[in-house]
Amino acid sequence: MEIARYRPGEDEEPVFQGYDVPLMADWAVLDGLNYIKDQLDGSLSFRWSCRMGVCGSCGMNVNGEPRLTCGTFLSEYGDGPVRIEPLKGFPVIRDLVVDIDDFLAKLSSVRPWLIREGEELPLSTEYAQTPEQLEAYKQYSMCINCLLCYSACPVYVLDPDFLGPAAIALAQRYNLDSRDMGDRFDVLNLDEAVWGCTFVGECTRACPKHVDPAEAIQRYKLTAALRSVLPWSKR
């Protein structure tokens, strides 16, 4: 395995360091990284948590593609080498660990929670949904915030002000929820939001949970266009 090593403030630029890792049939790339960390070089830094494709924290570039390292197997690459780099588009904190503060700020800006008007906490009323109402937003709720779509997105890599695929898709998750009464038009109808997307579609191809952020963005472009003609329409 070839691993990108970089310590900002100490190293001038990233360098690749090679490690010999056993080619085990059932080892994911994350297992290889843990082998290096435990057996060869304890100074290697990377993120991981659940090892089950749920937490989204182990996303990295594997041979140039944004992947979850817990779900990408060494056997896919034969005898190697397998090159591991941090996700593109994010400042590197150390080695394979990137700074996600910008993403978290963007995520918060779309108000990713159910907004109910005229109700005070704690909420005690239940709001039943039909299967059709659930299906309207279900796929967007599967996002695990792994950031693979951001690393794959050519717009975000070139323009860090772009709101980005996951944040827009999550905004749509709530816009399409029958229980939500919010209006995220002010956040989404911007050049830095849905109108900045050039519809390359790499975000959708990179998603390990089969969410379609590209579709979410195009759907909201239609919504925004209709609201310019029918301003009383919010959805």
Rank of each mutant, 00 (worst) to 15 (best):
C70W: 12
C70H: 13
C70V: 11
C70G: 12
F73H: 12
L74P: 08
L74Q: 09
L74W: 01
S75G: 08
S75L: 09
E76V: 04
E76Q: 15
E76W: 07
Y77H: 07
Y77T: 04
Y77F: 15
G78C: 11
D79G: 10
G80A: 02
P81V: 02
V82N: 11
R83Q: 14
R83K: 13
K88I: 00
K88S: 10
G89L: 01
P91N: 05
R94L: 06
R94G: 12
R94E: 15
V98L: 13
V98W: 14
V98A: 10
I100F: 13
I100A: 15
I100N: 09
I100K: 13
D101P: 07
D102V: 15
L104V: 13
L107W: 15
S109I: 02
S109C: 04
R111M: 11
R111I: 09
R111F: 14
W113A: 05
L114G: 04
L114V: 15
I115Y: 07
I115A: 14
R116P: 06
R116W: 12
E117T: 13
G118E: 05
G118I: 13
G118T: 11
G118M: 04
E120Y: 12
L123R: 09
L123M: 12
T125F: 08
E126L: 11
Q129C: 11
Q129V: 05
Q129R: 15
P131W: 08
P131H: 05
Q133I: 09
Q133L: 07
E135H: 07
E135D: 10
E135F: 07
S141H: 08
S141K: 10
C143P: 03
C143D: 04
N145A: 13
N145W: 09
C146K: 06
L147W: 10
L148Y: 04
L148H: 09
C149F: 00
C149L: 00
Y150E: 02
S151D: 01
S151F: 04
A152Y: 02
V155F: 05
Y156S: 01
V157K: 09
P160F: 03
P160W: 05
F162E: 06
F162P: 06
F162M: 07
G164C: 10
G164Y: 01
G164V: 03
A166Y: 02
A166I: 03
A167W: 07
I168A: 00
I168N: 01
I168D: 00
A169M: 15
L170F: 09
L170A: 11
Q172Y: 05
R173V: 04
Y174C: 04
Y174P: 01
L176T: 06
D177Y: 00
S178K: 10
R179M: 02
D180L: 05
M181V: 06
G182Y: 01
G182Q: 01
D183Y: 03
D183G: 06
D183A: 04
D183S: 09
V187G: 08
L188N: 10
L190C: 05
D191W: 06
E192Y: 11
A193T: 01
A193F: 00
V194A: 08
V194Y: 08
W195M: 05
G196T: 00
G196V: 01
F199M: 09
